[in-house]
Nucleic acid binder design. Structure first.
Lengths: 201, 201
DNA sequence: ACCTGAACACCGTTCAAGT
DNA sequence: ACCTGAACACCGTTCAAGT
């Protein structure tokens, strides 16, 4: 790639990250082109579809997700806390752009999608955490990573679209985690540490 | 309302129902106007925003939802089956238009939305079912109907956007139901009747 | 009181002309 | 090889003119 092309490419991605953060993944591509100081044709040359651009913008969190999964997989926290905090960071990462969670859960399990690669990264990171818990016998044994990603992605999508804050999202996670832990689990009373938080205005 | 206006109103809603069913709730309003044989101005006179039109289209399932909730609330099925089959019909109803689940979950708890009334119907129908189970001591006691609606709405949104079939949705529901039932429930072994269904191609 | 359809603004997409 | 920007198609929205 020619030097000026590379510069344009990088700049468009940087601008898109900002605009998607401000306005969500449905933001005007025209505005992104204008703010990046390129013609609309240049944006289309590099990113033939919106999803290709979104994929490029998401490239930056792949390492962070994997690191978070490694942390969780080697943590010594009890299963319940471990799962909860892993899911919180999972959600935080995929929610960096408004509309991101819905796109990712829609693409999950659909190899045609341009962001399928990102879904695979999520699925494998999640699988590592689940495997760790399964080895401890803390997890029910009839679920796979794809199902869990869909469920947590669904929670993230709801939180994203209804603009729920963390306090309003926590109860949803709580229910899912309870449903995932092995029913005869040894994690004691399965401490229900909820503060009966109400959704914020 | 004048007779011709009423006729136009009804016809637009009928056409919108069809088009939304075919193409989802993002379908072109222009096309709906054309297919209904009215000018775009007429559609806008009756339905100033897309959500007002969607709300009118949804009017037809309110009674059905309430009937389904009454069925569930008076059923003698064991808690697990009762909840599962209520959630299945909840999802079926809100998924009649592509994009419907996402809109409803986004509007849930947001009184500004034009479809907030429909959300309230869902919330109250669901509350009746939950109350019945709570009275039996079958339900964990730290959840309210809004949270459950969001969670099930999230599952419906995922299924809708990823175009999952019933077999791929069931495992997600299964996990949520397990998370909702009282942990020391008397419902026996909490029979896990899953057929390890895999998501469809 | 209601409807029509032209007009406008905005956006995604294409492509001929430039460097 | 890459970029520009004019041009086109489509869609939501408004409103003056009609009945």
């Amino acid at each position: 790639m020619r030097a000026d092309a590379q510069r344009n490419y990088d700049h468009i991605v940087a601008v898109a990250r900002t605009v998607f953060y401000e306005q969500g993944t449905e933001a005007s591509l025209d505005e992104i082109a204008k703010r990046a100081g390129v013609g609309p044709g240049t944006l289309y040359r590099h990113f033939p579809t919106r999803e290709v651009l979104i994929d490029a913008v998401m490239k930056s969190w792949v390492d962070q997700i994997q690191a978070a999964a490694d942390d969780a997989a080697t943590s010594s926290a009890p299963p319940r806390e471990l799962l909860l905090s892993w899911f919180r960071s999972f959600i935080a990462h995929i929610s960096r752009q408004k509309g991101g969670p819905a796109r990712l859960t829609a693409a999950m399990g659909n190899p045609e999608s341009h962001i399928y690669g990102k879904c695979q990264v999520l699925k494998e990171a999640n699988a590592r955490v689940l495997d760790r818990l399964r080895a401890d016998g803390a997890l029910r044994d009839d679920i796979d990573s794809l199902e869990v990603c869909r469920l947590i992605g669904g929670v993230a999508a709801v939180a994203d679209q209804a603009e729920l804050d963390a306090a309003a999202t926590e109860p949803l996670l709580d229910i899912v985690v309870d449903g995932l832990l092995a029913q005869g689990s040894s994690s004691g009373a399965r401490g229900r540490t909820r503060s009966s938080a109400q959704p914020a205005k």
